[in-house]
């Protein structure tokens, strides 16, 4: 069908210059994880924690009646309910959707508490993989929101191939296992077998809040609480779902081609 060829040529280049050129990530207006300013909290409030559907926020009364706010962004689904509940502008909406981290502890924002650091990652050197990475995706019970955004990675706008990153059909060719969903009881074994089929060195990415911590579906009679305790995780990306640009940033962070932006639950520019 030659007219498709001409059509394609006439259509020109659709791929965004981002991330080399800023501001063209395609996520204009897309809300991310809320930012918190605990010093603005009203005494004995806790409205945000009550509104949070995934228990990502805890408020404890510390010394001198001062509230101590702790946020686990690994549980955040960016639903903005805390922002609406907050009477004091201590929780504000933001465009911080790029939340890829190598350590789970970097997703914890806590005022004055020491979170234990579940040290993972760095098990294998990624040298030799920086310019070529093959991914096997396993859906372990997602709502298909994550799949929708993962499928978008190969559309002409994001064009994931330009980074040397590819999805592969067989786990035997895969370097990274990208897992979505809270890990249902029936997907637990197929997921484990996909991981076992991968050659070393192999890495695991928890993509989406469900895979990081269980999300809204976690627990119950049929679901687990994400990948922790199931497989060793090397890359965390909460988001519900994480948008394609957030997924690309996370992969580039993993490949040491971009600095990690989130530390201690805060985006550092």
């Amino acid at each position: 069908m030659p007219f498709w060829t001409f059509f394609g040529l006439r259509r020109g280049k659709a791929t965004t210059p981002w991330p080399d050129v800023d501001l063209q990530s395609g996520q204009e207006g897309v809300l991310g994880m809320p930012r918190f300013e605990p010093e603005r909290c009203e005494p004995a409030c806790g409205d945000c924690a009550a509104a949070c559907p995934t228990a990502a926020i805890t408020v404890r009364t510390g010394e001198a009646g001062k509230e101590r706010l702790a946020v686990d962004y690994g549980r955040c689904i960016a639903c903005q309910l805390c922002v609406e509940a907050c009477p004091a502008d201590a929780a504000v909406p933001s465009f911080d959707w790029a939340f890829g981290t190598r350590r789970r502890s970097d997703l914890l924002l806590s005022a004055g508490t020491d979170a234990p650091d579940p040290e993972t990652g760095e098990r294998h050197s990624r040298d030799g993989f920086r310019r070529s990475l093959h991914i096997r995706h396993v859906d372990a019970g997602s709502c298909n929101g994550c799949e929708s955004e993962l499928q978008a990675l190969n559309n002409p706008f994001y064009n994931l191939h330009r980074f040397g990153v590819f999805f592969t059909a067989s786990p035997r060719f895969a370097d990274l296992l990208l897992v979505t969903g809270p890990i249902t009881y029936a997907m637990h074994e197929p997921l484990r077998r996909a991981y076992e089929a991968m050659p070393a060195p192999r890495w695991v990415m928890a993509a989406g809040t469900c895979a990081v911590s269980g999300g809204v579906a976690g627990g119950g009679y049929a679901c687990g609480n994400g990948l922790d305790g199931v497989l060793p995780v090397d890359l965390y990306l909460p988001g519900c779902p994480p948008n394609p640009a957030a997924i690309i940033e996370a992969l580039l962070i993993f490949l040491d081609r971009m600095p990690q932006k989130v530390k201690g639950g805060r985006l550092v520019d």
Partner: peptide, 21 residues
């Protein structure tokens, strides 16, 4: 490619209008 590009445009419109793709 064209179908998925048009889908992407629609999702970006959603994002701009509502904050969520």
């Amino acid at each position: 490619a064209e179908g998925k590009l048009l889908e992407e445009r629609a999702k970006q419109i959603n994002g701009r209008l509502t904050g969520s793709r």
